[in-house]
């Protein structure tokens, strides 16, 4: 038996496979296809202090080996989550983590305070990297000062595990990573989507209603892998790697680059059972290479 358990900050995971926010709904959308309690952690979709309508349609553009989205954090707000969604997800036998976003520091703080009271939510993921909202979101994650300010403020009120999700749309991701580590983040997840754009040449119009959107899928994997590798060397807190992971082999690459856990995002859209296959595949890899534990391969890149 190989040991798949990992500890990410204060968070215990039965295995290192998580689902990325915005790609797995609240988990229950997938329960016809897969035993969702097998997954190490489910990160539910981006939640804000107040309800957000999101951006107009079209919000999606398919790209070579990936997709652009411009959803814009459509959600019914944190109070709706607490009253209507939490009762349905709190008994899922795995970690349910809420991704928190906002357009002002105070929004993040108030949302985090409310979530801090929920017994069955062991962690939040602070989204300072959403490219699809006008103010806030990525604005916090692309400046040293913004990342510092929001992490510090949330850390003061949020007592449980705090993950900060970083944007790849920066000159030096390690600088932001060191900042959020210094302000008390328990772990870092990266990468959020890469800012991109699609054009319909026939119509001479942008494909997305917002013109630009966030690129995800296998197309971004090499960038994600590089950023995880750089960040893992720059900070002491654990790294959660994501970006274009489609199968167990991709996941292993992120572990070798230094990620302690991984998130599966866009792949869920193509194969709703992919998380289970990745858990099995990682276990198979460890057995085949005679490792006892997933921790044996974290950062084990021979470079």
């Amino acid at each position: 038996m190989v040991n798949l358990k990992v500890k990410i900050g204060q968070l215990q995971l039965k295995n290192p496979v998580m689902t990325a926010s915005g790609t797995f709904g609240y988990g229950t959308e997938y329960s016809d296809f897969i035993d969702i309690s097998r997954i190490g952690a489910i990160i539910v979709k981006g939640t804000t202090l107040r309800e957000r309508e999101g951006n107009p349609y079209p919000r999606l553009a398919e790209t070579p080996m990936g997709m652009l989205n411009a959803v814009g954090l459509q959600n019914k707000g944190v109070d709706y989550f607490i009253n209507h969604i939490y009762p349905n997800v709190k008994n899922i036998d795995t970690n349910i983590i809420v991704n928190v976003s906002g357009s002002a520091v105070d929004d993040y703080v108030k949302t985090a305070e409310k979530l801090n009271e929920l017994e069955k939510i062991p962690a939040i993921e602070l989204n300072i990297s959403c490219p699809n909202v006008k103010e806030g979101g990525m604005a916090f994650g692309t400046s040293y000062r913004g990342a510092s300010e929001v992490t510090k403020a949330v850390r003061k009120v949020y007592k449980k595990d705090l993950i900060v999700k970083l944007s790849p749309n920066v000159t030096d991701v390690t600088e932001i990573a060191r900042t959020v580590e210094a302000e008390g983040a328990d772990s870092i997840s990266l990468i959020n989507t890469l800012l991109g754009m699609a054009i319909d040449a026939e119509k001479r119009k942008p494909v997305l209603s917002t013109i630009t959107g966030g690129l995800s899928g296998p197309a971004v994997k090499p960038v994600a892998l590089r950023m995880v590798w750089q960040t893992a060397k720059a900070v002491k807190i654990p790294i959660i790697g994501l970006g274009g992971i489609m199968n167990a082999k991709d996941a292993i690459e992120f572990f070798l680059a230094g990620a302690c856990a991984i998130q599966v995002g866009t792949a869920n859209f193509i194969d709703p059972t992919v998380t289970g296959k990745i858990i099995d595949g990682v276990e198979e890899y460890l057995k085949r290479h005679k490792f006892d534990s997933i921790t044996d391969i974290i950062g084990a890149l021979d470079a």
């Binding site: 790609t23 709904g25 999101g54 349609y57 919000r59 959803v71 459509q74």
Partner: peptide
């Protein structure tokens, strides 16, 4: 146009009297 088809990605919305 859709990605997931099961209500997870929120890409295929249409504007209605009840919102997107």
């Amino acid at each position: 146009t859709m990605a997931c088809g099961i209500g997870a990605c929120l890409c295929c919305v249409t504007g209605t009297t009840e919102g997107n």
